[in-house]
Nucleic acid binder design. Structure first.
Lengths: 208, 208
DNA sequence: TGACGTTTCATACAAGTGTTTGATACAAGT
DNA sequence: ACTTGTATCAAACACTTGTATGAAACGTCA
């Protein structure tokens, strides 16, 4: 069992490769044969380590959730004592980093985007552990910025922020066709510009 | 050949059923067996009428595009002479109607959302015929509302509008979990509230 | 009516799928 | 030395998939 250092390597390799392929092809179109091939593992490895294909998928979702907010915390590293403007910028930047960054394997955002279009039963878990913290934090900040708004209005504003962050990632295919020069920008440059754009537009909108 | 009234019925039924199933399951996961079953047609009908599965898919995309902007024109029925504020509201309402309305078969928005996450080669066609008109119209209106902004800034603002319209449809699964009372609202009621929210937030943001 | 083109049908087939099985290798513990 | 638990492997299984085929049914027109 202490040999598991060796065994965990193939297990981890499977999770990593599977994440990428699930994100690229979708759950159903992804084949465990391709996953095992690319992971340098035998076809039966998935069955041995994860019981079946869905067990592997669950592990992929789980590990993605676990490492996601851990690397880019919801508040973007901005403390609760900072101004609400700075806190908003922190949330937006962290969201964009999670969604767009290439340091993270780029497929993680794709996995989540796919889950929203094509839920697979794991959606409540994702919401509980990923969306909820960001959602609540954003509501808190907006309540500071626009206390005069109704509860529903504040909630809609929070969704508008998330909508913009989300859109600029999962519609990047379309955006690059509509505006070719946007495709030339580096990822980090996009994050800078989008953070600035979304925060300033939202702040102005909230005050209007 | 004039008998084709009967044959076109099964052809049309196939397109309609296929659209719904492609939207629900995705191209690969959708099976022509299920499509033919629900359309009350024989298994070989797809092969006969559309050559193969991809031919059917192309026809579905094509017919969706053709009827989409035709029923809900990009400008929402607001004339070019109206105020930019009214025109913006028209665009937003039309977009939300296309995306959320149940009079239209509800799967059409899902088809498009899926194409963005999982392009299938038909994406350029969709952009050319659907996204481009909305995109250009929105840019024109925003140029009226905020002429002092840079070209890139106006473009980003246009995307922010589209992002919000799009998000409230394709993330409705998530939204209903985060805010259960939102799920109780009727579709037309949602459209009213979202139109008001998005236009006012955007107008305030543009002026800030 | 009878020939013809069009459409529908049951059936078959090859390819690809997830899963299972039994054998094998290896290390650790007794 | 023997057993035990873990991990990997090749092979096979049962099933679904898209596609192809040939016969039958249908309506149209001479």
């Amino acid at each position: 069992m202490s040999v598991s250092s060796e065994s965990e390597k193939t297990r981890d390799r499977l999770i990593e490769v599977a994440g990428r392929i699930f994100a690229e092809r979708g759950y159903r179109a992804a084949t465990i044969r391709e996953i095992c091939d690319q992971a340098g593992a035998n076809l039966a490895a998935v069955n041995y380590h994860f019981r079946d294909k869905e067990g592997l998928y669950s592990e992929v979702i789980g590990s993605t959730i676990r490492s996601s907010l851990e690397r880019y915390p919801a508040d973007g590293g901005v403390s609760r004592e900072a101004s609400p403007e700075q806190r908003l910028e922190g949330v937006v930047r962290a969201f964009l980093q999670r969604a767009l960054s290439l340091e993270e394997p780029p497929w993680k955002g794709g996995l989540m985007a796919r889950e929203m279009v094509e839920p697979s039963g794991k959606l409540p878990k994702i919401i509980q552990e990923v969306a909820r913290p960001v959602h609540d934090l954003l509501l808190e900040i907006i309540a500071q910025l626009a206390p005069e708004r109704s509860d529903e209005s504040r909630w809609l504003c929070a969704q508008s922020v998330i909508a913009q962050c989300h859109f600029f990632r999962h519609a990047s295919n379309v955006l690059e066709v509509l505006r070719p020069d946007w495709g030339q920008l580096s990822v980090s440059e996009r994050i800078v510009r989008l953070t600035e754009h979304i925060t300033s537009l939202t702040l102005a909108g909230l005050r209007g």
